[in-house]
Design a protein around this nucleic acid. Structure first.
Ligand SMILES: [Zn+2]
Ligand SMILES: [Zn+2]
Ligand SMILES: [Zn+2]
Ligand SMILES: [Zn+2]
Lengths: 163, 163
DNA sequence: CTGAATTTGCAACATTATAACATTCGCAGA
DNA sequence: TCTGCGAATGTTATAATGTTGCAAATTCAG
């Protein structure tokens, strides 16, 4: 679980993928969960980029590889992967992305570029803290947090200076 | 734009609704926007409770009143209402809720009870600040924030002590 | 009144997600 | 090795959510 490259910058993405797959295998092993071929392949497809990918995009990719699957196959694999914290669902996009902090207990905050489509997952203590404190002031017991920030990543700001 | 009652507690909800409708009329007037019959009725339906309501639920409600509408009617009204900050979309529920801070420039944070379904909108400066600071550390220019916390509201905690 | 712009009606369609049930697979114990 | 059980997958159909495109109606300024 080492530090990850910034998705926006060119980087050795194969390293991202192999790290993620290694983490996944370790986590499943550790929990006695079965990372089957389909599940593993779905995870790899999700990790093919740092852009959140729709379930039907995953399905299409599987189909293009000759694995003719139906929606439930993909959704079930995604459910499994979410359960073990290997992927996150991005509610504002109805899409899924590989977790950059698998194995660590965390609440992801996503910075999603509306221009290039890449998403960066952060875990910022000060943010989590502020959120839980705010919930506490209402005597609300928070269980899960969805935090998705849309905007422009550094690269795309440079390309379209203002608007 | 006075203070609002807590949605969880019994309260004079008619007052919530009439306040919201009055705010809506004022805001539309102020912007030269037309709060037509359909739009007004959709807003009222959304405000019928503090539980986020699906677009098709609104549609059904309209239908039950004899107004036979199709999905685009509802979605268009909702788009309009969102544009003027009168309702928010809850991405994690595919549902809509009346804005409790219409007219104020704000980013809502929602506390959604998974038990009773009520949602409370907060605007907490410390949270917004932490989020924007976190985004800044990545040189990310944030434009919109979705923050939805799911958990148990005070009432429902009392009813199901632990789990 | 007239014409342009906004709003609504309507039909079809696209996308995302789930239900229900049959079949196959992996693995542990006989 | 065989057998049986539970987990996983395949398959079909369907539900739920959201959109496109175009025609008709409404509103409002001039
Ligand atoms: Zn990468
Ligand atoms: Zn994560
Ligand atoms: Zn109320
Ligand atoms: Zn609001």
């Amino acid at each position: 679980m080492s530090a990850r490259a910034l998705p926006y910058r060119p980087h050795d993405h194969d390293a991202c993928v192999s790290q993620a797959m290694a983490d996944a295998r370790a986590i499943c092993q550790q929990h006695g969960a079965r990372l089957t071929t389909t599940r593993e392949r779905v995870l790899e497809i999700i990790w093919q980029s740092h852009k959140p990918l729709g379930a039907y995009d995953v399905l299409a990719k599987l189909a293009s590889e000759g694995h003719s699957a139906a929606p439930p196959t993909v959704y079930r694999a995604l459910d499994f992967l979410q359960q073990y914290g290997l992927v996150h669902r991005i509610a504002s996009l109805n899409a899924f992305i590989g977790c950059a902090h698998a194995g660590e207990l965390h609440t992801g905050m996503f910075l999603i570029c509306r221009c290039c489509g890449n998403a960066l997952e952060l875990t910022t203590t000060s943010v989590s803290k502020a959120i839980h404190e705010a919930a506490s002031t209402q005597a609300f017991r928070s269980e899960s947090v969805i935090l998705e920030v849309t905007g422009l990543c550094p690269n795309c700001q440079a390309e379209q200076p203002d608007e």
